[in-house]
């Protein structure tokens, strides 16, 4: 259902439209599979929102025209609104693009009217009710840490996790339905990791950009300097066993660019990277091949460690 406030969502059974985006279904379908496994197990119903499209991503309509951006986003939001549910995304870009578009429409009637003129051509109308929630926030606020703790078969005791909430999990806080108390010292992902038994300490570059997205496609070299700074900070300050993110773009960058940096001899360490839904799925005992089977930086060892030593 579409929630005005989070507490309201708790009155009935939780249900969200699973918004996939592009990178998850095509590049990292293990993340999609992880979500399809964990949410029903946590008693959260998911709807496929059949016919959903790209959010639209930053390099497409947002770069062409504000109304066009909002129209594509509104069509996706309508799919949820028609069923009376909010969307739920595991990709920060989708979360950002959809909510920024919604914010523009809600605050500028002119944009909203133009969008609905376009939507009318396909027999749709966006009322501004449905929004996009982030999987991390759904897990943290709607499902709750206690329920997560109850649900896991393997615990991460003794593991140190470097968290990467990602930019669009935080900024601009004004447009998001859920807000970190302090977006410059985010806690939600750290709390979620701690619920699994791991240590998730602060590190200096925790909120810094990974360099993914347009920066990477425009200038890979410059993009890699950013991710290298971040990885080195993680290695030096907290020597993490694992990097956990709530963004599919960050996941790809930290996983993929890390391997490239190693090949170029720019770094000598290897830290596996997982999306939080993957990590949760592993802890809940789902098949690692299905929920975490796609990566560039090897995960075998960390998965083995979790499954062997973490059994409760």
């Amino acid at each position: 259902m579409i929630s005005e406030t989070v507490s309201e969502t708790l009155k009935e059974k939780l249900k969200f439209g699973l918004f996939l985006g592009c990178n998850i279904p095509f590049n990292r379908p293990d993340v999609e599979q992880a979500m399809r496994k964990i949410f029903p197990a946590l008693n959260v119903e998911i709807d496929d929102l059949v016919g959903q499209s790209c959010c639209p991503s930053w390099g497409t309509m947002p770069s062409v025209d504000v109304v066009g951006w909002c129209a594509v986003a509104a069509r996706n939001l309508c799919l949820g609104e028609e069923k009376g549910i909010d969307l739920m995304a595991a990709c920060n870009s989708c979360y950002g693009s959809l909510n920024e578009a919604r914010h523009k429409m809600l605050n500028n009637p002119e944009i909203m009217n133009k969008v609905n003129e376009i939507l009318a051509k396909i027999g749709k109308k966006y009322e501004g009710k449905a929004k996009c929630r982030h999987v991390a926030w759904v897990l943290y606020r709607d499902v709750g840490l206690e329920k997560i703790k109850e649900s896991i078969k393997y615990s991460l005791d003794g593991l140190t996790i470097a968290v990467q909430p990602g930019c669009h999990f935080l900024w601009p806080s004004e447009v998001y339905p859920d807000k970190e108390e302090d977006p410059f010292n985010p806690k939600v992902l750290r709390e979620l990791c701690k619920a699994l038994g791991a240590d998730a300490p602060y590190y200096t570059k925790l909120i810094d950009c990974c360099g993914m997205g347009a920066l990477r496609s425009t200038n890979p070299e410059k993009s890699f300097t950013l991710v290298k700074e971040k990885l080195e900070c993680i290695k030096e300050e907290i020597d993490a066993d694992l990097i956990v993110t709530t963004c599919s773009s960050c996941l790809i960058q930290l996983d993929d660019a890390q391997e490239r940096l190693r090949k170029e001899g720019k770094i000598s360490f290897s830290i596996p990277v997982l999306h939080y839904v993957q990590l949760l799925a592993l802890c809940m005992g789902f098949d690692p091949q299905q929920v975490a089977g796609i990566c560039v930086t090897p995960r075998d060892e960390i998965i083995k460690r979790i499954l062997e030593s973490g059994k409760r």
């Binding site: 930019c167 977006p183 997205g213 920066l215």
Partner: peptide, 12 residues
């Protein structure tokens, strides 16, 4: 501008 990651930290 095409390299902007739209991170929005500036907006914040």
């Amino acid at each position: 501008p095409w390299a902007c990651v739209a991170c929005n930290r500036c907006t914040e």
